[in-house]
Design a protein around this nucleic acid. Sequence first.
DNA 1: CTAGTTTCTTAATCTAGTTCAAGATATCCC
DNA 2: GGGATATCTTGAACTAGATTAAGAAACTAG
Lengths: 190, 190
Amino acid sequence: MTILQAIEKHITLSKEEGNYLLSILDAKVLKQGEFIETAGKITEHFIYVKSGCLMTYYTNEQAHDHVIQFAMPNWWTGDLNSFTKQVVSAYSTRALADSEVLLIQKKDLDTLLDRFPVFEKYFRIIFQNSLITHQNRIVQNIAATAEVRYLEFQKKYPSLEQYVPLKYIASYLGITPEFLSKIRRRLMER
Amino acid sequence: MTILQAIEKHITLSKEEGNYLLSILDAKVLKQGEFIETAGKITEHFIYVKSGCLMTYYTNEQAHDHVIQFAMPNWWTGDLNSFTKQVVSAYSTRALADSEVLLIQKKDLDTLLDRFPVFEKYFRIIFQNSLITHQNRIVQNIAATAEVRYLEFQKKYPSLEQYVPLKYIASYLGITPEFLSKIRRRLMER
DNA sequence: CTAGTTTCTTAATCTAGTTCAAGATATCCC
DNA sequence: GGGATATCTTGAACTAGATTAAGAAACTAG
């Protein structure tokens, strides 16, 4: 599925609108492990995932990584705070597998939204859906055990467990790799 | 501050646009403790808080409440999932203090967005900012101790602690009231 | 004012999840 | 292919936070 087809699930685009969007997108291929944004720098791009998989994570003072989100094909990702306000980013984003991404710069996105307001609607819908997902995750984090969160993760990202190191999944769940190991054994034994 | 003034911090409205918005808003006064939406029903309204304070929470099978968010004056709130998809809500929303709210129905919001696309931009910005806040909270939940989360809560909602029962704050933080008590004593003793 | 209810705290006991350390597997790269 | 490196698991000791229970404080409403 092309990015235009994905977008047209939510809104209708004219030729001109579609072409203009494509003209400001910058395609990039990422090797597994490669960084696209780095904590400590200002986020240059909002990122659309064409193929592969990325993750965005926070590294604390003790150098522990905390995975905020995984990004699958046809999702937008990146540090929205740093991108929006053009402040130094707290998060890094890198490829978990060989990936293709489309990048858009802040000034180009601003121009796009100004010239073709239909994209306001598109991003309104995207952000609204994302907000619902985030609210869900917060409820899970405060109300559910790690085991339940793990089972929910498997439902939400069925393909991911095969090729993402378990330590990142543990991090996403907010637990240690050791404890995830225990949970997995417990589940196997049943 | 009126709702139109609040909105005009983000976008510019014509007389007609402003008046149309006002015409579809339904003002309501809530007594402390009063429900505006209830888990198990379809969320009828997206809620704008004029004054007072609301909370939205999830109640699990063991009848434990989990506070998802507090809503302060000039914020929008409610169960976005239930409202957007018109499915049964998992959350309840009620007033923590005597409050004034403005309500908008789904069909009226849809019409508003259709007739006056400038509101697409407004809600795009609102949802985008909210998403940033939610991402922040997720990081905190998986990376920070309860004590740090409590201190952050106090920064974010300086006025709230005075009149919101501590048990709801504990719930928002994802801990028990008893443990919040311990944290508070620990902090006092320093 | 007072009885009843809700909220807050304290303390003892318990458990989900962490930390540390070590061994076992798998993956990468020359 | 083999050595180096990263990942995954296991277990023992530990700690953040939960649970239970009970008393103190605060806020209702009659």
